[in-house]
């Protein structure tokens, strides 16, 4: 990923910034220009709470080149407590312990890097909520 493309997404990848429609309250991640519920164009940006639940998950064993060193890994759709859904790796637990509905927290992690000499891309991955 070119550094400029990665940089443009920092508010979302680094801080999980979402946008809430000022008219109807629907939250979007990533933010969008027009609300698909009420056609509103005014949004308030906010940092989502880092907690949510696993909606569904799968195991990636043959990833794209960018993630080849990480396979196999779990990938899931996370329902954030603030409303939006996002796709994230689920790490720090054995695959057999993955469960739909399990509570997770998004933790800051390395997502990928451009080889040994290129830029390192950071973002969030889901980890099981410690009980």
């Amino acid at each position: 990923m070119p550094p400029a493309r990665s940089w443009r997404a920092y508010p979302q990848t680094y801080r999980l910034e979402a946008a809430r429609c000022s008219k109807c309250g629907k939250a979007f991640f990533p933010p969008r220009l027009v609300c698909n519920k009420c056609n509103g164009r005014q949004f308030e940006h906010f940092e989502m709470k880092h907690t949510g639940k696993v909606v569904t998950h799968t195991i990636i064993r043959t990833p794209s080149d960018e993630f080849s060193g990480q396979a196999p890994f779990a990938l899931g759709i996370i329902q954030m407590d603030d409303g939006p859904r996002l796709t994230s790796q689920i790490v720090d637990l054995p695959f057999e312990e993955l469960r739909i509905g399990m509570p997770v927290r998004l933790e800051f992690r390395r997502i990928s890097s451009e080889g040994e000499a290129g830029a390192i891309h950071y973002g969030h991955k889901a980890v099981p909520v410690r009980i």
Binding site: G69, V91, F108, R109, K125
Partner: peptide, 16 residues
Amino acid sequence: PALDEDTITLSVEAAR
């Protein structure tokens, strides 16, 4: 540390 953890990721979590 896991492959996706480094000084920056640990620092961010501690800072939060």
